[in-house]
Design a binder for these strands. Structure first.
Lengths: 248, 248
DNA sequence: AAGCCCCTTTGATCCAAGTCAATGTGTACC
DNA sequence: GGTACACATTGACTTGGATCAAAGGGGCTT
């Protein structure tokens, strides 16, 4: 149990975020940096922050100062229209960056919400810019990360623009599977951190449609669903489904 | 008439791209740079390239080396799925950058096609990174441009995920209008450079639906359409249309 | 000036997904 | 340990946009 013992002073070394001893090197900003360079990055990463499930990391309209690296946990980002319509723009997991949208106007343009208890590293953006003027590798890696975000968004546009409901859900499951795999988890079995409604919002579908598609996949033996617990039984079947579109 | 006189040698000064005497300062990378800094940028921008209508600036899969600033003309970018489905991911006009998607994998991830005769400045990316390690303002501005692209994409996701056909088209027209205005053109009257099919692909609609929506807008007195020539007659009407969604 | 091709418009019909409604299920809180 | 509440499933019906089909421009080329 993570119950903090009363009044016990905690050593700075433990509290201090340290890229150098973080096991996310391969997923996060330090990718490809030398030991020395990672230590410089350490100085820039100012603090960790813990969030409970449901808590906002930032909200649309707030001033932008920092980007965040997810140390552990799971987030969604969403945009709200004045009339209350909501679009989930992404789900982020360990090692991924949050807040890149805020650079453009120096205000966050979406909301970031923890979907489970999570922990992030706060990276003041002007410090990061400073350091990436010094460290070429860091600069280039950061540019790649931003660019990857753009490519990812194009993928979602493709999905929303051209795919039918079951294709969208299959693509979604395969994407999650692949990201879990990259983090050392099972490619075939995982818990969804988000509701059917959030999946639907992300995929441009109503929650009932998401639910029906899950049921259909189960009937066809592609997956086993029990609430948020998913097991992928036939990954090639799911992949085929995506090229099996009618005509067009 | 821009008919080039035969065999007349052209002075280097004319051919050479020069940010310093380009009238796109306010829209393009040099935004906010000092005179000296712009001259440094000049050295980095290696060449102009002219494209005829229909010509590809780059194709998905090609090696990425440079980004491109549009000096004049109009482009679309699109992504193709193996099965032939196409998604237009954006339309780009004067002053906007093309190719940011390629940074991530060092390969272009989409196609960029000129929709009218156009001219671009080629900016070798490693040179740009080099210079932006020297010039803080340039670095920051470049980051803002990339971030703006992400925010823009989120807007498109919102559009594709939550809006009905007529809302999408209204949003599209208003967006074009606003961008033309920023370039000193009429906010109310313009020629579309793309076909109904390309608009449809961008908006996740079939070309017939786009056509019908145009006709409906015309019946309602919101716009006057004649083929590719658009006049916006009631801009507030168009804006209202977007908040007038049914329920949800 | 004719003829062709591409783009666009319009009509009739169909279907995938949305809507509305009721019932089931798991979990957190007294 | 019961009860409340949020989330999920399933069914019946509706509908917005897709599909199929045909006809009407515009602007090329020859």
């Amino acid at each position: 149990m993570p119950n903090r013992k009363a009044a016990q002073p905690i050593s700075l070394a433990v509290v201090k975020t340290a890229c150098s001893n973080c096991n996310l090197h391969e997923l996060c900003l330090p990718l490809g940096l030398s030991h020395e360079e990672v230590e410089k990055l350490d100085e820039v990463v100012s603090a960790r922050r813990r969030l409970k499930r449901g808590e906002h990391l930032y909200r649309a309209g707030e001033e932008f100062n920092s980007i965040y690296a997810i140390r552990s946990g799971f987030f969604k980002t969403d945009v709200l229209l004045e009339d209350g319509r909501e679009q989930v723009t992404g789900f982020q997991m360990t090692g991924e960056l949050l807040g890149l949208d805020g650079i453009s106007t120096e205000q966050h343009s979406c909301n970031a919400v923890a979907l489970e208890d999570s922990e992030v590293c706060t990276i003041p953006f002007s410090n990061l810019e400073g350091l990436s003027r010094e460290i070429k590798t860091l600069q280039h890696h950061f540019h790649k990360v931003m660019s990857r975000e753009i490519v990812r968004d194009h993928g979602v546009m493709m999905l929303l623009g051209t795919m039918r409901a079951e294709e969208r859900l299959a693509a979604f499951l395969l994407n999650l599977s692949q990201r879990f795999t990259a983090r050392g988890y099972s490619p075939a079995e995982f818990y969804l951190r988000m509701t059917r409604e959030e999946i639907g919002s992300y995929l441009g579908l109503k929650l009932e449609t998401v639910s029906r598609a899950f049921s259909r996949f189960q009937e066809e033996g592609l997956i086993a669903v029990q609430q948020k617990h998913i097991r992928i039984l036939n990954i090639t079947g799911l992949k085929q489904l995506m090229s099996h579109h009618p005509r067009n």
